[in-house]
Nucleic acid binder design. Structure first.
Lengths: 218, 218
DNA sequence: AGCGAAGTTGAACAGCTGTTTGATCCGCGC
DNA sequence: GCGCGGATCAAACAGCTGTTCAACTTCGCT
């Protein structure tokens, strides 16, 4: 997936070095401690840059959060859309439920892999989704076009189901995905006394798709 | 607001009136706007009490949050434990998966009903679970005894499944439950163009249990 | 070399935060 | 009536917040 010599994951385009430092430090701290618990001073200290850098490069702390959210969301949705597109190609435009669910679940689970740089990005996204500012919340409810691609595909693949039933089940599936936060995974580890291994993302993907597909096509 | 004579839901035991005012106002504001976005001044203004009331009656803002969380969690878990107990009685100590899942899901869904005073309490709990303080997070990972009752019952009801598989599926089910936040339900309504009605909690319960049971016993 | 824009810096700003304090009020038992 | 403990009050506290500003440096281009 990654190549040696590739530019920093955070910013493919060439930009000011400190801007990227701020971006990455902020994403990391937001993901670990939450937006409200991280101050601009925390970010600039972590990035080892001047305090004013955040406002100079991003305008405001809120704008910084939103820019991270926007970029990561676009990246994640792009991967999902590509997988859905490939599934369409393989099945003449009408892929089965299992492949649609896989396209929805595989990208975030890949990001969750321990060796992946994007593990922290996924945690950021999950956190931003529930703790984000009003701007982020509006962005989430406003842009349903991405999600609609999946709901439409699921409706087409489930001719026996009423549409609203499909929406509900998609809602449940999204809940399964968003449950993969550090805190919840920790609790799962405590409960299972360490027998669950979320690091094996391939096994986890199979597990999740099995569960969701069974719920969808019961 | 409430019928005369009925004791306040928030505090069955007799306590100082302003303490209850603070408790209820704080729960409401926390549920609607998040812990960090609500100041002590917001709470005392909403409750129409003096600013110092929070520290006088609860010690600190964090302690207030934790007390609300503790009480609501205890109430919710009590309902769940009672339903599991009744399912045990009905089935000689070995209830089927569907009844265990119902015991887990029905109480929070009942709280979600629009006419229910506890609708706001459920939103508070879901929010506190993901945005809460370190104390709340430790309380969640530390006290697995409540959840263990359900995982043990599910293991007994699923003899063909490896234990860790049961833990994972329980994890997914909890994700389905926690997905029922205002923001996520709003997005669902936008996506479905208003055809989903979360107010019909009985239908929602059936839907969720159907989905979860199919995933569990596939 | 020299100009101008872009970037960086330290310092300061006003505002809001949770918490504390000491005074005052209220109701109840003696 | 008196006193006492709990409850309420206005006021102030110190600390942290995001943001701004003007001075300074760095860099690219002619």
């Amino acid at each position: 997936m990654e190549e040696a010599g590739a530019p920093d994951v955070a910013a493919p385009e060439v930009e000011a070095a400190t801007k990227n430092l701020v971006f990455n430090a902020a994403e990391r701290l937001f993901a670990l401690h939450g937006f409200q618990n991280v101050s601009v001073r925390d970010i600039t200290a972590e990035a080892q840059v001047n305090l004013a850098s955040v406002n100079y490069h991003f305008g405001s702390k809120d704008a910084l959060l939103f820019e991270i959210f926007r970029r990561r969301t676009a990246e994640l949705n792009r991967e999902r859309a590509r997988m859905l597109h490939e599934a369409n190609d393989r099945h003449g435009g009408a892929p089965p439920v299992r492949e649609i669910l896989t396209a929805l679940m595989a990208p975030p689970l890949r990001w969750l892999a321990p060796a992946n740089d994007r593990r922290i990005s996924l945690q950021f996204l999950i956190r931003a989704r529930s703790e984000g500012t009003e701007e982020i919340r509006q962005s989430l409810s406003g842009d349903v076009s991405h999600l609609r691609r999946f709901s439409d595909a699921l409706i087409a693949a489930s001719p026996a189901l009423p549409r609203e039933e499909v929406y509900w089940r998609l809602h449940f599936v999204l809940g399964m995905i968003h449950q993969n936060r550090f805190a919840e995974l920790d609790r799962l580890n405590v409960l299972s006394e360490g027998t669950t291994h979320e690091d094996d993302v391939d096994a986890l993907l199979t597990r999740m798709v099995d569960f969701a597909e069974a719920g969808f096509t019961r």
